[in-house]
Design a protein around this nucleic acid. Structure first.
Ligand SMILES: NC(=O)c1ccc[n+]([C@@H]2O[C@H](COP(=O)([O-])OP(=O)(O)OC[C@H]3O[C@@H](n4cnc5c(N)ncnc54)[C@H](O)[C@@H]3O)[C@@H](O)[C@H]2O)c1
Ligand SMILES: NC(=O)c1ccc[n+]([C@@H]2O[C@H](COP(=O)([O-])OP(=O)(O)OC[C@H]3O[C@@H](n4cnc5c(N)ncnc54)[C@H](O)[C@@H]3O)[C@@H](O)[C@H]2O)c1
Lengths: 209, 209
DNA sequence: TTCACGCTGTGAATCGTTTCACAAACACTG
DNA sequence: CAGTGTTTGTGAAACGATTCACAGCGTGAA
């Protein structure tokens, strides 16, 4: 119903609105939010309309109410624990950031095959052996996971996660995962981002000549 | 001229083509590449057409030639060094991955304000004090950078990088950077990715009911 | 009370991207 | 060497997302 683009942007808007609220402002206009988010006022209004909130022509949007409306769309009804597979360099960074950060979305279990890491607590999160994956995920009712294992191990990790009940994945490995219908995968491809930046950094310069 | 979507996809195709080449295959059809990349054969053909390569109706695309054609678009004419600002949890992960990885795009200098990190070599990369940023970037002719500092410090890091000559940024901080025209910014927003996954994981399940 | 202003909500236009659909090309077969 | 089957390249259609443009409204000023 709501497009992935809109979902992505309202997540950004909410973060910005929290900053605005922290400054003591109670209202914002679409053009202010647009400037902060790097998009157009029309885009902001369309997105706000999509999630069913509406503001006042005179005062714009009520910051607190808009945050609540966005949260009603984005936030899971109750706390959702996230699993992390692969506690390497990137996995540890994710742990340091997403353990206990948000009340609604936080990493609650990590998995690795390395005996050095297994059964230790890393950045405040218990690291389990991969063999316990299905059990821990079922017990905790985990439905989203972050994949941060080497490319060669990613597909198998995805398969195990999905079979244990996970239906949303953030994948850092540079491979396209095969998952059944109904499972949502978001690929975060840093190498691609860098190559794109390198390309457009050159292109843009040439434009200026 | 070439859209950012196409640039992103050909980066993925190239990675897949290298895997295909490693298996000893010399030719691929658009439908094979499409299956691997998770898109349609028509999309692959359109992208290949866009970069000016063409295959044979009978044998599909020559793997080596297509890799070369993509590289002619993506690769900088000579080696491009990348700078990293912020050697924290995420920055170290980036270093471990992008130091010496590709012959064309590799992190060659890191910057941090923490005296503990400055002037040490981390994952094979020298970490300089932020005050040396402009000098090192100019000396090395660096034109792309990765920002991995806390949100509050990101805008200032971007400003300094750009003033030193950088015109392409990969930004991990959850803020929208203000940069002059001609500077390309790619935001990698992991929190947004997670929120999107959580949302669509729920949505998809409901669809099935 | 009336007016003028500036913002929202939204139908319609526009824009960029993806997909369709098919002619032309080629290899293989008998 | 004609026939068959499969694939490419690409104009044109379809699609989805963004932007335009303006009616309608509430507010503050006079
Ligand atoms: N580090 C980066 O900046 C970066 C950038 C882009 C992409 N990536 C990708 O992210 C992934 C992780 O990168 P990294 O740098 O953290 O790698 P890493 O080698 O530091 O860590 C990988 C971890 O996964 C564990 N592991 C390996 N096989 C496993 C399995 N079958 N089950 C469970 N755990 C397993 C290892 O023990 C290790 O702890 C890789 O696919 C990499 O390509 C990383
Ligand atoms: N770690 C993650 O998984 C993750 C996920 C999403 C977003 N992020 C974002 O990425 C950024 C980095 O995250 P992190 O987890 O590595 O943080 P971190 O706190 O571990 O590291 C930040 C590093 O930046 C350095 N630093 C601070 N101010 C600086 C300045 N002005 N100039 C140079 N260096 C400076 C610090 O010394 C530290 O080494 C943050 O903006 C964070 O919001 C991180």
């Amino acid at each position: 119903m709501v497009s992935d683009k809109t979902i992505g942007r309202i997540s950004v808007y909410r973060r910005l609105l929290k900053e605005v609220a922290a400054k003591g402002e109670t209202n914002v206009f679409s053009h202010q939010l647009a400037t902060m988010a790097g998009c157009t006022p029309a885009q902001v209004r369309r997105d706000v309309m999509t999630i069913g909130y509406s503001g006042s022509p005179a005062r714009g949007y009520d910051v607190a109410e808009l945050i609540d409306s966005i949260s009603a769309v984005l936030d899971p009804p109750e706390h959702e624990g996230i699993a992390l597979v692969g506690v390497g360099n990137l996995g540890r960074a994710m742990l340091s950031y997403f353990v206990g950060r948000s009340p609604r979305l936080a990493i609650v279990a990590a998995f690795d095959e390395d005996p050095e890491k297994v059964n230790r607590v890393i950045h405040g999160c218990r690291c389990y052996p991969v063999n316990d994956m299905e059990q821990v995920i079922r017990e905790r009712g985990i439905r989203e996971a972050i994949i941060a294992v080497p490319a060669a191990a990613a597909q198998d990790a995805a398969r195990r996660l999905v079979s244990a009940g996970v239906n949303g994945l953030v994948n850092f490995a540079p491979v396209r995962l095969w998952v059944p219908d109904g499972v949502y995968v978001e690929n975060v491809d840093v190498t691609m981002a860098l190559e794109r930046v390198a390309y457009f950094a050159r292109e843009r310069v040439q434009e200026r000549v």
